[in-house]
């Protein structure tokens, strides 16, 4: 296959898988939140269990008028949702679904993931500024403040994994976790990094990831009871849909990164290495589903924090803990 054909196929595959996953996540959120609140949730769309509700919602949004406020910076305003969704999609380029199921196995995979995933905040800032709305502006600036506070703990958490794995390539990080750790009665036992001393790192990563995704308890950039809808206030129609999809795509992407870095990615102890190209994607998706459920659970249980409390949490707790975690990872690597 020529270079362009391969590239086209990969782009289509990533788009289909990603947007499909985003829709499934939206459906999961509708249903799980409903059951937590003694409701039924979507019920009729699609004939059974309301499975078609996200699709129906999407279709409805497509038909809505695409409003651009008169005073808005039109170009930036129109561009912003695509920056968000592209950032969410681009992360998937380096996520390995199996030993050979990866779009591009970059040597600096971990670095690339962090760099690209924080791009979405740029889109949020653009949206906040360009909307020419005070609530949007406050929301956008809150998002920027949040990014600065949470990018560091996120980096420190990933750094500990890199120290322990000795590589930045995500495929190799998974491979290291799949290696036999020790042998019991002739059976080699492997363990993901969360077992090998990275439990603090995993916790920091998840907290920082939720903050970066602006989900409750860290949804201050949106905070509908304070800022109506934050940076989303002026958006409607397809551009709102893009933000919405981007939010859920990022959520899945962040979970996939966490699963790859801490939970062993596509590898599962006990699954023979030869079958991983077939079983691997399902293993990874299972782990992603677990983490997505965790995020949904948090969202429907907790209220939101205040911006300054979030900053205090990041600078006083997560960054020192992240530094400590790197030291622990070093000790773990040398001793075991």
């Amino acid at each position: 296959m020529s270079f362009w054909a391969t590239l086209g196929l990969q782009v289509v595959a990533v788009l289909a898988v990603m947007l499909g996953l985003a829709l499934v996540t939206i459906y999961a959120e509708l249903k799980i939140s409903a059951h937590m609140q003694s409701r039924i949730g979507p019920y009729y769309a699609g004939g059974r269990w309301g499975w078609a509700q996200p699709l129906a919602d999407g279709l409805k949004f497509l038909q809505k008028e695409d409003l651009v406020p008169r005073l808005a910076d039109s170009t930036v305003y129109r561009l912003a949702p695509y920056v968000v969704i592209v950032a969410a999609l681009a992360v998937w380029v380096v996520i390995p679904f199996g030993p050979s199921l990866v779009v591009r196995d970059l040597d600096l995979g971990a670095f690339y993931v962090l760099a690209v995933s924080s791009l979405s905040t740029l889109g949020v800032l653009m949206a906040g500024w360009a909307s020419a709305n005070k609530y949007s502006l406050i929301g956008g600036l809150r998002a920027a403040a949040q990014l600065i506070a949470y990018e560091l703990p996120l980096l420190l958490a990933v750094l500990a994994v890199v120290v322990q794995a000795g590589t930045m390539s995500l495929s190799e990080i998974v491979a290291v976790q799949a290696e036999p750790w020790f042998v019991v009665a002739g059976v080699p036992i492997s363990a993901p990094f969360i077992v090998k001393g990275q439990i603090i790192g995993f916790t920091i990563f998840m907290i920082a990831a939720i903050a970066e995704l602006s989900r409750i308890p860290f949804d201050m950039p949106i905070a509908e009871s304070e800022l109506t809808m934050g940076y989303l206030t002026e958006y409607s129609g397809i551009r709102f849909t893009m933000f919405f999809l981007g939010e859920y795509a990022s959520m899945v992407a962040m979970s996939a990164i966490a699963a790859t870095l801490y939970l062993g990615g596509y590898a599962l102890p006990g699954v023979p290495a030869a079958t991983l190209n077939v079983v691997g994607p399902f293993v990874l998706l299972g782990k992603v589903a677990l983490l997505v459920f965790l995020m949904i659970w948090f969202r429907w249980t907790w209220p939101r924090l205040r911006e300054d409390q979030l900053q205090a949490m990041a600078w006083r707790w997560l960054i020192p803990l992240g530094l400590l975690n790197i030291v622990l990872a070093g000790i773990f690597k040398v001793v075991l």
């Binding site: 937590m36 609140q37 003694s38 409701r39 409750i216 429907w300 907790w302 209220p303």
Partner: peptide, 16 residues
């Protein structure tokens, strides 16, 4: 009140 602080679930439980 919890809704204003961002928690959505107490709304449903109390209104029930």
């Amino acid at each position: 009140y919890p809704l204003e602080l961002g928690a959505t679930t107490p709304l449903m439980w109390a209104l029930r």
